[in-house]
Amino acid sequence: MSVANPAEFSVVSDLDAFPDRLKGGVVAIGNFDGVHRGHRAVLQAALAEGRKDGVPVFAMTFEPHPRTVFNPDNPVFRLTPRDQKADILRACGLDGVLILPFTREFAGIEASDFVGDILIDRLRISHAVTGYDFHFGKARAGTPDFLRASGQTHGFGVTIVQAEQDEAEETISSSRIRECLANGELTLANGLLGYRWFVDAEVRHGDKRGRDLGYPTANLQLDPHCPLKHGIYAVRVRTSKGVFDGVANYGRRPTFDNGAPLLEVYLFDFKGDLYGETLRVHLVSFLRSEEKFETIDALIAQMDRDSEEARAALASLRPISPVDLTLFEFDR
């Protein structure tokens, strides 16, 4: 995929504010949580149509996840919250993204009204691209066949993209990637995503225990529903002072307080503090599970080994896709 000019990428959450420059374009519609390789097959099809017809290409997505709206007691963990999703869509080469608020009222819109009022009257689309399993409108009546028929009636093209499979011929899905993260299968998760998964979080004050151990860390609190396996990770981190490699622990610190889960990041070759700053942490490889140590000396010795292993893992990285190359900042 080509990379769009970031200055021309539009993030819109209000239909009334949808820019004229994107009207008449090709829309790729879906939740796109993770913007994984299966989603990018939809985006590639949309980009191909846009290039062929010389019109803009944008994504339409929804926040929060529909399953969270209908089952708020069991919210869906977002692999890529709104801002992260927009960054990845930008890296994919799109011209913009329309992020529509998903509510029960929105879910009750008749499928025919979704097509007529939104796709045609508001957006004036020339072509729609969706995945094989995307449904929309009241009672999920907007099936792929319904969308095809609507396109024939109203004069816009429709492309339905079939499931994308990995090298083992298994379907790529957001739920499968969440399971990989929970199981410590980070290499597989990153392979299915087509880029190194990352989180954005603000640095908070902690108990400063890492300084006493010779490993001062930036403490980050992740989404409480984050399924990431507790353990040690090799990471690359974007800060206001540059991009740094490092090693991180995600877990409850069983050697000390066994408290609430935190992502504690130690940056190699960094001096200073980052309190109040939002860091972007790319998780590169899973090194080991979190464990409790009998002595502080044993813990420090293991941290030394973890740091050496993380440096080795980070020293030989190569991009796994053009999107990874854009997001991951290999040229530091």
Rank of each mutant, 00 (worst) to 15 (best):
W197N: 08
A45K: 13
F293I: 10
T326V: 13
L283N: 08
E167S: 15
D20F: 01
G246S: 09
F198L: 09
F328S: 11
A260E: 14
R211W: 09
F70K: 01
L283E: 04
N74I: 00
S173G: 05
D324F: 02
E49K: 13
A107Q: 10
A149F: 00
D95W: 07
D73V: 01
N183Q: 15
A139N: 15
K229D: 05
A182S: 15
V12C: 12
R140Y: 02
S285K: 12
T278F: 06
A313R: 14
K85F: 05
C226N: 14
A301R: 14
D53G: 11
V35E: 06
N31M: 07
G96R: 13
V323K: 04
L47S: 13
Q44W: 01
G142I: 04
I99V: 15
D87H: 01
F198Q: 10
I296N: 06
M60S: 02
A218P: 00
L314M: 11
Y132S: 11
A28Y: 03
T187E: 14
E63I: 02
E291L: 10
S307W: 00
P6K: 09
P319A: 09
A248W: 10
R104Y: 07
I160W: 06
I172E: 05
F146P: 02
A107H: 11
A168R: 13
C226W: 08
G93E: 03
R51A: 14
F244V: 03
V129P: 00
Q84C: 02
S13V: 01
I125C: 06
L181I: 05
V55L: 13
L274V: 06
K52I: 01
Y266M: 02
D257L: 09
D304G: 13
T326N: 12
F293V: 11
G272R: 07
K241G: 09
R40L: 11
V55P: 04
I109G: 05
G246W: 03
Y275I: 00
R318K: 15
I172P: 02
G96Q: 12
G50D: 07
P81D: 01
T80A: 08
L314R: 10
L79S: 04
N249V: 07
G242L: 12
L193K: 06
T103L: 10
D113W: 06
A46P: 07
H65W: 07
H230Q: 14
D273V: 00
R305D: 14
R196K: 10
R40E: 12
M1E: 08
E309M: 07
F136L: 03
G50Q: 04
T295D: 08
L79P: 01
